[in-house]
Design a protein around this nucleic acid. Structure first.
Lengths: 138, 138
DNA sequence: GCCAACAGGACCGTTTCACTCCGGTCTCGA
DNA sequence: TCGAGACCGGAGTGAAACGGTCCTGTTGGC
């Protein structure tokens, strides 16, 4: 289809939004998140690991362990989450790798892609988990 | 990688931009376009067929045949071209298929996706082939 | 009628997606 | 201290999409 988010990215947003509903520092287990958001747990495990590696979430091992946001929900954006899971957002190869597009300096198409990409990143970078979360749960 | 254009979409833009450099109605052969834009010819054939089916290009068979834009370059946008080749632009499944997202009415995430998608389509829908073409060739 | 050029369908190797599995490690709490 | 609960992380996997190729038409100009 092209230009579409991966499943992993979608799940990551849902999982993080779920965490954002709780008070800061609240720990939820893989199982809790998976059940609540209807995400296959074994897959979710991978996704959460990416988020931890990216510094967006923290994990607690051992009994009563789980995951929590690494910083306040208003300081994490959709863009952060998506890039953590799917890698850098690049709407076209030539906007990512300067080597790829030799004629980038003169090419009007290249400029158009850059503009499209900036717009997209602005929107995604402007939406915080806080604004995505429904009424918080105590 | 996610959120990235397909090769086919990229080639389609390049091919159409090539046609847009010439006076209206100018016919260029598959071979000409492929050589000029460094696109594998057998693959380009598929892409041009999609563009013809979508009504963006017209083809002329037989000797001295080839392809031309179906309408003036200022009336064809990047969005038109991409959708013709890669299908409808939908940044997430839930923005395409209303059935897919049961909670769409209440879901803040859904609204965010809709906004991101609209922004992207606005940008791509605002760029015409004419504005992409370098100085025309007589 | 020949040759140039598109039409279109079948095919195909590779990569990515979307998951799963499993052994390992850590930690709490009884 | 020991064991159950929970994350860690790497390997594996089936299906689908991507990115093409190829071959047999069919069309049309000369």
């Amino acid at each position: 289809m092209g230009l579409q988010l991966t499943r992993g990215g979608e799940y990551a947003i849902r999982a993080m939004t779920y965490l954002a509903r709780y008070p800061e520092g609240h720990v939820a287990s893989l199982r809790d998140i998976g059940r609540a958001q209807e995400i296959p747990e074994s897959f979710l495990a991978k996704i959460l690991q990416s988020l931890v590696h990216a510094g967006l979430a923290v994990s607690q091992r051992g009994a009563h362990g789980g995951f929590a946001l690494a910083r306040p929900a208003e300081q994490i954006t959709m863009r952060d989450v998506i890039e953590a899971v799917d890698g850098p957002i690049s709407v076209n190869l030539c906007t990512l790798d300067p080597e790829e597009c030799k004629r980038s300096s003169t090419c009007e198409v290249h400029k158009a892609w850059l503009r499209a990409q900036e717009q997209l990143m602005d929107v995604l970078g402007g939406v915080t988990l806080k604004s995505l979360a429904p009424q918080p749960v105590a």
